[in-house]
Computed example of a mutant assay.
Amino acid sequence: MAVLRIRGLALPEGDPVDLYADGDRWTSDPVPGADLVAEGWILPGLVDAHTHPGANTPGDPLDDGILRDDLRAHLESGVTLIRSPGLADDPPDWFGRSDDSPRAFHAGRWIAQHGQFAPGWGRRPDPADLPAVAAEQAARTGWAKIVIDWKAGDDIVPVEILREAVTRVHAAGGRLAVHSQHGAGGAVAVEAGVDSIEHGMGLDPALLSRMAEQGTALTPTLAAITGSLARTLANPDRARTSWYVPGASVHARLTAAAVEAGVTVLAGTDTRPHGGIAQEIRALVTAGVTPHRAIAAASWAARAYLGLPGLLDGAPADAVVYAADPRTDLSQLDKPSAVIVRGKRVAR
């Protein structure tokens, strides 16, 4: 099999590169006879940091065929790495490893409180057992995910329990993500020192500097939240009574403020159909985030947060290539000229 080669201008710096896929690793050492498959603007493979592939509707079981289709959609959009903070069940062994799958981090099944979250999904241990369950999950897969708040008025995981979960997850060598869509839940998450807050709607902007200092990331799932807000506002009666409207209405402003405060902001879609990372990047830009930073949240910055380097010698051989600079033409994100994962070009 011929060695794959790409060349062009590489982000984030825009430096010229000429890279060869030595198996699953990039090298700049020339390989005679290498197959030049793409030239243009080159990004480290895109990242969707919040996606739940494998089930069509909440509560459905994990389906192998749906999972494969979802992951293929991610690849075709340029996403070569996903983080799934919650799956309907433990994924098959090929998940994150096969040619039809992006690289993947996952948190197993969600961990939620009794009477909360989607029926049929997740585990609901007694509150005192939450830290142990989270630590066991993180020891197996590197991440655990706790739903710390759900509907308005529901109980929030107490800060002392969540702090113990953080301690035990870290002791197991993992990281802890939490679902939060209420201000009180966000405050507990920041106080406990979780590794990432998913959604973060209603988060107090005064907490952003502390998040930046302690390394708590935010995955705002902005396109999903603003899309849901638009549907809610289209029904005046529902909009008038919905708890969702106040937080969702300022979520774009919060996201932009988080970037400015130095919080690690990760691009995540949280929607079906899969493969919508370009919409999330554009939502970040619409919110006031610069195109460079918005793309970083879905590429090199997200990869760095998850422990994968970019377009360097010895780095995983993942990349997405565009004909023009996507920072000056966001429409490029919809039409990558080549997607490479594990040193192989994704057939399109």
Score class of each variant (00 low, 15 high):
Ile156Cys: 00
Val147Trp: 14
Thr167Ile: 10
Ile148Phe: 14
Pro158Val: 07
Asp149His: 00
Ala171His: 02
Asp154Glu: 05
Ile156Tyr: 02
Val159Gln: 04
Asp154Cys: 00
Val166Arg: 13
Gly173Met: 11
Ala152Val: 13
Gly153Gln: 10
Leu162Asn: 08
Val147Gly: 11
Val166Ala: 13
Arg168Phe: 06
Thr167His: 14
His170Pro: 04
Ala172Gln: 12
Gly174Asn: 07
Gly153His: 09
Val159Phe: 03
Val169Cys: 06
Ile146Trp: 03
Ile156Arg: 00
Val169Ala: 06
Glu164Met: 08
Ala165Lys: 04
Ala152Asp: 13
Gly173Ala: 09
Gly173Arg: 10
Val169Thr: 11
Val169Glu: 05
Val147Phe: 12
Ile146Arg: 01
Glu164His: 05
Val157Pro: 02
Val169Asp: 07
Pro158Arg: 10
Lys151Asp: 15
Val159Met: 04
Asp154Phe: 01
Val147Thr: 14
Val157Gln: 00
Gly153Ala: 08
Val147Leu: 15
Val169Pro: 06
Gly173Asp: 07
Ala152Tyr: 12
Val166Gln: 14
Lys151Leu: 15
Gly174His: 11
Val159Pro: 04
Ala144Trp: 03
Gly174Ala: 09
Trp150Tyr: 13
Lys151Met: 15
Asp154Val: 00
Ala165Gln: 01
Arg168Leu: 13
Ile146Asn: 01
Lys151Ile: 14
Lys145Tyr: 04
Ala144Thr: 03
Ile146Tyr: 01
Ala165Ser: 09
Asp155Gln: 14
Lys151Ala: 15
Ile146Gly: 05
Val157Gly: 03
Val147Ile: 15
Val147Asn: 12
Ala152Cys: 10
Ile146Thr: 06
Arg163Asp: 07
Leu162Gln: 11
Arg168Glu: 14
Gly173Pro: 06
Pro158Asn: 11
Ala144Lys: 01
Gly174Tyr: 09
Leu162His: 10
Ile146Met: 09
Gly173Tyr: 05
Pro158Tyr: 05
Gly153Ser: 10
Ile161Asn: 02
Ile156Gln: 03
Pro158Thr: 07
Gly173His: 10
Val159Gly: 05
Gly153Glu: 12
Glu164Asn: 08
Arg168Ile: 08
Ala171Arg: 07
Gly153Arg: 10
Val157Glu: 00
Asp155Lys: 12
Asp149Ala: 01
Ala144Val: 03
Lys151Gln: 15
Ala165Cys: 00
Ala144Glu: 04
Arg163Glu: 00
Asp155Ala: 15
Gly153Pro: 06
Ala144Phe: 00
Trp150Arg: 07
Ile156Asn: 00
Val169Asn: 10
Val157Arg: 02
Ile148Ala: 13
Arg163Lys: 08
Val169Met: 07
Lys145Glu: 02
His170Tyr: 08
Glu164Ser: 12
His170Cys: 03
Gly174Asp: 06
Thr167Cys: 08
Ile156Trp: 02
Val159Trp: 06
Pro158Ile: 04
Val169Gln: 10
Arg163Asn: 03
Asp149Thr: 05
Val157His: 03
Trp150Pro: 02
Lys145Ile: 06
Lys145Ala: 05
Ala172Pro: 12
Lys151Val: 14
Asp149Trp: 03
Ile156Thr: 08
Asp155Cys: 09
Leu162Phe: 06
Ile148Glu: 15
Ile156Glu: 01
Ala165Asn: 03
Lys151Thr: 14
Glu160Asp: 15
Gly174Phe: 08
Ala171Tyr: 02
Val166Cys: 13
Ile146Lys: 05
Lys145Pro: 04
Leu162Asp: 08
Arg168Met: 12
Val159Ala: 08
